[in-house]
Amino acid sequence: MDKKIFIEPLFKNNPVSVLVLGICSALAVTVKLEPALVMALSVTIVLGFSEVIISLIRNTIPNRIRIIVQLVVVAMLVILVDQILKAFAYEVSKQLSVFVGLIITNCIIMGRIEAFALGNKPLPAFVDGIANGLGYGIILVVVAFFRELFGSGTLLGYQIVPATWYIKNGGFYENNGLFILPPMALILVGVFIWVQRSIQKELIEKQ
């Protein structure tokens, strides 16, 4: 099997920063690292399995109603993930609130099913799903890392910035509240795209 299917979505053909898919949830769940990791894992699982299922039944779906069939398959998997999260990770599932449900309309899923699963065998489709989920996860983790580190001074809930640095303890440091607010996620993704395109010159858009 072609190794490219797995390697390319991770950075070179990343679903978020290159294909512009799945932005909504990538931005909303990245205030802290923990929900970002859970979200990335959920999307990877849903994406992998929905691509396998669609790929298995791809020759029997009538073309006209394929969107609804795809939505039903994805919605079923998302309900499973949501119930599992509610049972075993209730706190995180509260933090993610509606965004678990919104995996259904996450454009990465519909985009990859349309672009890949409908035309390929189950195994490559599964690999493509997992790789795109991981590529999405990389962006989430990078954004959440900076937002949690600068916004709260912690990582995964552990204090990273020494407590004695803070002004209230007689130091010089203060958390940057702007990083916790929603707009900073957009600016961080913008900077990520800037860095990526400085490395991969062929992605630069023509004026």
Binding site: S17, V20, P183, M184, A185, L186, I187, V189, G190, V191, I193, W194, V195, Q196, R197, S198, K201, I204, E205, Q207
Partner: peptide
């Protein structure tokens, strides 16, 4: 150049 198109749009929305 590397910020053109998508990159600057993200920052504008921010």
């Amino acid at each position: 150049a590397p910020l053109r198109g998508l990159g600057i749009t993200f920052i504008v929305v921010g």
